[in-house]
Amino acid sequence: MSSKVPIRLSVNGRVRELDVEPRLLLVHLLRDQLGLTGTHVGCDTSNCGACTVHLDGEAVKSCTVLAVQADGTKVTTIEGLAHGDELHPLQEAFWEDHALQCGYCTPGMIMAAADLLARNPDPSEEEIRHGLEGNLCRCTGYHNIVKAVQDAAEVMHGSAVADRQEVSV
């Protein structure tokens, strides 16, 4: 076993300082050392996207990032997406539209969708489908996931407009 390396990162708004093995994957840091088990592992090859988290605001597959690479970054996981008891619009929409069944892919899917909407607030169906092609779901057939992302986009777009109006008043 190799010697450990100190890292410092922010996870869901909390600063964490840890000593980690250089080979430790970010997903295992999150799950096994920080107890954030909402981020899942579904494959060994970065295909399934169940492990998707945000690293400095961008979606990454945390099974393909070393914990040491996350040194100095801000990480957001599914546990950090809601504001307290108030669900993120994507979480609301996934619930409302039955966009999950077993739920295993769901955290990664929601994190990937959040990244997609950050980059493209008003995506077409095709853009959503291509935007999520790095995340596999075996249960839903994607139909309701696409619908949930559209619905969340509408809600987020609406509140963004409302925010701007508030500012202008």
Partner: peptide, 14 residues
Amino acid sequence: DPRLITGRATYVED
């Protein structure tokens, strides 16, 4: 769904 969309569900590996 609430536990599944917030990452609070418990699978075996958790």
